[in-house]
Design a protein around this nucleic acid. Structure first.
Lengths: 125, 125
DNA sequence: AAAGACTGGTCTATCTTGTAGACCAATGGA
DNA sequence: TCCATTGGTCTACAAGATAGACCAGTCTTT
């Protein structure tokens, strides 16, 4: 929006919220966290749980969540290999806010769908 | 992940959470909602507030949020044109969950950055 | 014994999404 | 007169996501 402004201002840490939301709000992270909130899971198990995530995105998402300290990765020297993903304390502490969010989503999903349909109708006139 | 499965299962409304998060968790929506939570704003004002959003994405995000019933759009027949965006009741009801989320982000941002730095260090070995 | 499926990923080619920047038409200010 | 402002849209390009092949070793089924 303001190309000159970014040069003027030092943009190290915009605001915590931005930084966190950028990572969390990426289509898959919340889903992965919610799934791992239910139980520790292995890679393919998680893939089946979320179902329509590609292996690559699952891999990337897990790696980022691990980097950010939300989850931990345990590799077992077995054959076939076993890799388990578990929420860390930080990850678990996020379940509260996430639960409130999903609860809101659950309660208001109907209203959103309704609004969406009305908008479609209005558009088609 | 499971290409065959999507044919078997009717995928009308996966789950409310998925549906809502897909819309909300898109880089900009939460930012726009948070900004409009502070006060009603006009298009360019909002653009300046968020600063690094492109006009196109701002436009699209606003349109989607309006469609989903989070915000309302008021056009004033003035010159230069004036368009104001305001949260609806639904939008305002979302501020609670959003606030809890941003509060968590605020409190845990430090831990996340720390974890991120450690990960970078471990990687460079 | 051979074929297939499972493990946890990575790689590449393609498709979709996002961004930057030009552009619009009318008006106010310097 | 020249530039900024209003709320956008359009287009060309860059970045991100996806599908699908592939790997090497083991276990199960036929």
């Amino acid at each position: 929006m303001n190309p000159e402004k970014t040069e003027e201002i030092e943009f190290d840490q915009p605001c915590p919220i931005r930084d966190v939301l950028d990572r969390i709000g990426d289509q898959w992270s919340l889903l992965v966290l919610e799934a791992l909130g239910r139980k520790t899971m292995r890679f393919n198990e998680l893939g089946r749980e979320i179902d329509d995530i590609s292996r690559q995105m699952l891999s990337r998402t897990l790696r980022r969540l691990e980097e950010d300290g939300f989850i931990s990765r345990a590799i077992f020297a077995e054959v076939p290999p076993r890799v388990e993903y578990t929420l860390t304390a930080l990850g678990r502490s996020f379940l509260g806010p996430l639960h409130i969010l999903t609860q809101w989503a659950d309660e208001n999903h109907g209203a959103i769908c309704k609004s969406r349909k009305l908008a479609r109708l209005a558009q088609s006139d």
